[in-house]
Simulated scan of single mutants.
Amino acid sequence: MELSFATAALRSICEKRQKASAALGKVAAIELAARIADLVACETASELIDLFPEDIVALNPRERAIRLRAGLELRFCSGHVKTPTSGAGTDWSRVTRIKIIGLETVDD
């Protein structure tokens, strides 16, 4: 899939291991890099959801998050100009562009 980012700072953390290590710690940075690689390797968002069903959280009909074991959620939505929809929400099987919109600490 193709990725875009909500902010330059978020792009920097997601794309640069050194920035991620400084901001999140080494273990979280390694896990984040692996999940970003998984996103890029998948052809559609539904493929990612099928690969990691326990780690994907439905935040609302248009947003999902990948739970990282480091206690973070990588939030994303469709990155298409016109989001493919089905019923009341995003048709994830037709989403080939993802926009990373946040990286937040999870309160368990």
Rank of each mutant, 00 (worst) to 15 (best):
E43V: 14
R64C: 06
D50G: 09
A28E: 07
E63G: 03
L39I: 07
F52N: 02
E54F: 13
E31H: 09
A28H: 09
L39G: 01
D55F: 00
A58Y: 08
I56M: 12
L48S: 02
A58W: 03
D55H: 07
V40K: 15
I56R: 04
A58K: 11
R62W: 06
T44H: 06
E54V: 12
I56H: 03
I36G: 06
P53A: 04
I49L: 11
I56K: 02
E43S: 15
F52E: 09
E47Y: 00
D50P: 02
C42Y: 00
A28M: 11
A45Q: 06
D38G: 01
E47V: 03
E63A: 14
A58R: 07
A29F: 05
A58I: 09
D38N: 07
P61I: 07
A65G: 09
D50L: 12
R62F: 12
A37M: 07
A58P: 08
A33M: 15
A33I: 10
A34T: 14
L39C: 11
V57R: 10
S46E: 15
L51T: 13
D50E: 15
I56N: 02
L48V: 07
P53H: 03
T44D: 06
R35H: 10
A29P: 09
L48F: 09
R64F: 00
A37T: 12
S46C: 05
F52A: 11
D55I: 00
E54I: 13
E63Y: 06
A28K: 09
E43C: 10
L48K: 02
A58L: 08
E43G: 13
D55S: 04
A29M: 12
A29H: 06
R35M: 14
P61D: 07
L48W: 01
V57F: 06
T44P: 00
R35I: 14
R64Q: 10
E31K: 09
C42S: 05
L39K: 00
A45F: 10
S46G: 04
E43Q: 15
R62D: 13
L59D: 01
E54W: 08
A29E: 06
F52R: 11
C42N: 01
L48Y: 00
A34G: 10
A65W: 08
I49Y: 06
N60H: 06
A45K: 01
